[in-house]
Each structure stands twice: as C-alpha cells, then as structure tokens.
C-alpha cells in the first residue's frame, strides 16, 4: 500500500509491504520520521489538533492552542468539544497549559501565542 507522509511538507510517498496486518518493509521515506509515521498510521493513526479559545481582557480575543503531541485520530472531536467549552483570562504566555490530558488523550492543551492584558483593563485594575 502507499501512504503520504504528513510529518513534514516534503510529503514523501511511502510504499509499505503488509502481511496479515504486520509491516514487512517501508520504502520511500526521506528521513527516519517517515518510518515512525507509517507505523503509527497503520497501527494507531494520530494527529495534532489546533484551534483557538476565547480570551477575556486580552489585547486579542482569541488565543491559538494545540495539543502538546499528536492524539489518536478518533479523539479529535472529543478534544474539540473540550476546547469549545474553554474561556481564559489574559495574560496568557506561549506554552501555558490550559488542560492536562485533554479528553483523556494523553496530550495537554497548550497556548501557541502570548496574549497580553489589554492596557485599559490593567489600568482599571490599579
């Protein structure tokens, strides 16, 4: 069978020889990460999930988030459900963890951008 490696933009075409669900050989990978990808994709496919969450009192209204590592494909929409119910207060710092083990996926949900407190709001606070 053939698979497109999605690990990096090169997108190598991997040719995989399978026998009774076991991998016999993998060819066409431009780097070792292609092997890891093919094994995962056949045994238990995983994906990164990215979205945004609402931020209150920040200089931006949304903060982009991602899973700290790829999660099982069938967990994607459960992860999205938890993301939708989330609302955080500024300030946010890049790599802040919002949810540990999001949707029991084994990955954390983390910020991929810093969002400062809106200046008018920080003045009000003082």
């Amino acid at each position: 069978m053939e698979l497109t490696c999605i690990t990096c933009p090169k997108g190598c075409t991997l040719t995989i020889e399978l026998k009774e669900g076991k991998i016999l050989s993998i060819q066409g990978n431009g780097c070792p990460r292609g092997i890891q990808y093919a094994e995962n994709e056949i045994l238990h496919p995983v994906r990164m999930v990215t979205s945004t969450i609402q931020v209150i009192h920040g200089i931006h209204d949304r903060c982009p988030v991602m899973t700290s590592k790829p999660v099982a494909k069938e967990k994607i929409f459960e992860v999205m459900k938890e993301i939708h119910s989330l609302k955080v207060e500024a300030p946010v710092f890049v790599r802040d963890v919002f949810i540990h083990d999001v949707a029991q996926s084994g990955a954390d949900l983390i910020a991929t951008r810093s969002v400062q407190l809106e200046s008018s709001f920080s003045n009000e606070k003082k």
């Binding site: 990096c8 991602m66 991929t112 951008r113």
Partner: peptide, 18 residues
C-alpha cells in the same frame, strides 16, 4: 494557527503564531 512551521529554522513543529 495550524502546526507545521519551523521544522528547518527552529527544529521544532510550531504553529504560525508561535
């Protein structure tokens, strides 16, 4: 906001904003 940025420059998979 998707990931896939920076594999060459930073040797990490980052989102665009990061």
């Amino acid at each position: 906001i998707h990931t896939g940025f920076g594999l060459h420059t930073f040797k990490e998979e980052l989102s665009g904003p990061e």
